[in-house]
């Protein structure tokens, strides 16, 4: 957000729209120029259409909201007005996966990656921490085309100590080991690193790949990493269908990978009648480092 505000000061063609969310977040933008920042009201479909109109007149437009309201409520506007037109509009969504915890299902983002990865021209990026978000913000300013940026919540765990040299579409190998390849995205990258640490205490070597870009998806890279290991696991805070795990599975199936493979993500059975904070819901979904470590250990023992 700091990066964006700096750019907003200097770039007369940069517009920022919110659909009445982000309390206090946009004060700096409003103070800088009220001509290029708009709270369009609780009207997401209109926000996307306005962004398209602005972009068709040469503007670089950022749209902000909580993920379900940003990409699912106006999905058809996103599909036609932004993606099909290939416009320079950045959709910045907060609340990946279970971030909103006790606020419940309406606020969860469980299907967004499946939806956004299926759209033409769309780039889909999931920063693993706030430093990566900063790197992605800088890249997004230069990127001419539609981009979906999936953020978690504030105060999430960090894996970097400064903004990394992140390249869109190029997976980031965070550690290397000989036995397991672990593909993770978003907040789950941090969990993946902890799991790798726990496995190494048992003498199991783990390669952790930060899949910060889901579209374009570097299938060749994934297949290459997988073939050098005897087990592959994917981790995401998203429906286990249609996100990272599905993408990895497609690559493995087509490349003839014959080792162990399991996807970790959210299964809809878990959602029924469960109330709790984000960490509680992750625990229930088996997405905490401890639970993941146990499941992976079982899979490795069976292999």
């Amino acid at each position: 957000m700091k990066r964006l505000l700096e750019a907003y000061r200097d770039d007369r063609d940069l517009f920022v729209l919110t659909a009445d969310l982000g309390f206090k977040l946009f004060d700096g933008f409003e103070a800088e120029s009220r001509e290029r920042f708009y709270n369009v009201g609780v009207a997401e479909a209109n926000m996307i259409g306005i962004a398209a109109g602005l972009s068709l007149c040469g503007k670089n437009v950022y749209c902000y909201s909580i993920i379900p309201f940003l990409v699912m409520r106006p999905f058809e506007q996103v599909r036609v007005d932004i993606a099909y037109h290939g416009l320079n509009v950045k959709l910045v969504g907060v609340g990946g996966g279970f971030t909103y915890g006790c606020e419940g299902f309406t606020h969860f983002a469980l299907e967004d990656l499946a939806l956004m990865c299926s759209l033409p021209n769309m780039t889909v990026v999931v920063p693993a921490d706030r430093f990566e978000a900063e790197s992605v913000a800088a890249i997004s300013l230069q990127h001419d085309g539609p981009m979906y940026i999936r953020l978690g919540g504030r105060g999430g765990p960090v894996i970097h100590d400064k903004p990394p040299d992140l390249k869109i579409g190029r997976p980031m190998v965070l550690r290397e080991g000989r036995d397991i390849a672990l593909f993770a995205t978003g907040d789950m990258v941090h969990s993946g690193m902890r799991v790798a640490g726990m496995l190494s205490e048992q003498g199991i070597g783990t390669t952790v790949v930060n899949m910060h870009t889901l579209k374009p998806f570097d299938a060749e890279f994934v297949s290459g990493v997988a073939s050098a290991h005897r087990a592959v696991f994917s981790m995401e805070e998203h429906n286990v269908r249609g996100g990272l795990g599905s993408a990895v599975a497609e690559v493995l199936a087509e490349s003839g990978f014959s080792g162990v493979f399991r996807r970790f993500g959210i299964r809809e059975e878990v959602l029924r009648g469960v109330v709790g904070g984000a960490d509680f819901l992750r625990e229930r979904s088996g997405l905490t480092p401890q639970r993941l470590y146990e499941e992976i250990s079982v899979s490795m023992a069976e292999a």
């Binding site: 708009y38 479909a45 209109n46 996307i48 259409g49 306005i50 962004a51 398209a52 109109g53 602005l54 972009s55 068709l56 007149c57 040469g58 503007k59 506007q77 036609v80 007005d81």
Partner: peptide, 14 residues
């Protein structure tokens, strides 16, 4: 239902 929003965005840009 898309056109008026797009047009409003263009009018805003103008």
């Amino acid at each position: 239902g898309h056109g008026l929003s797009i047009a409003a965005g263009m009018a805003l840009a103008a």
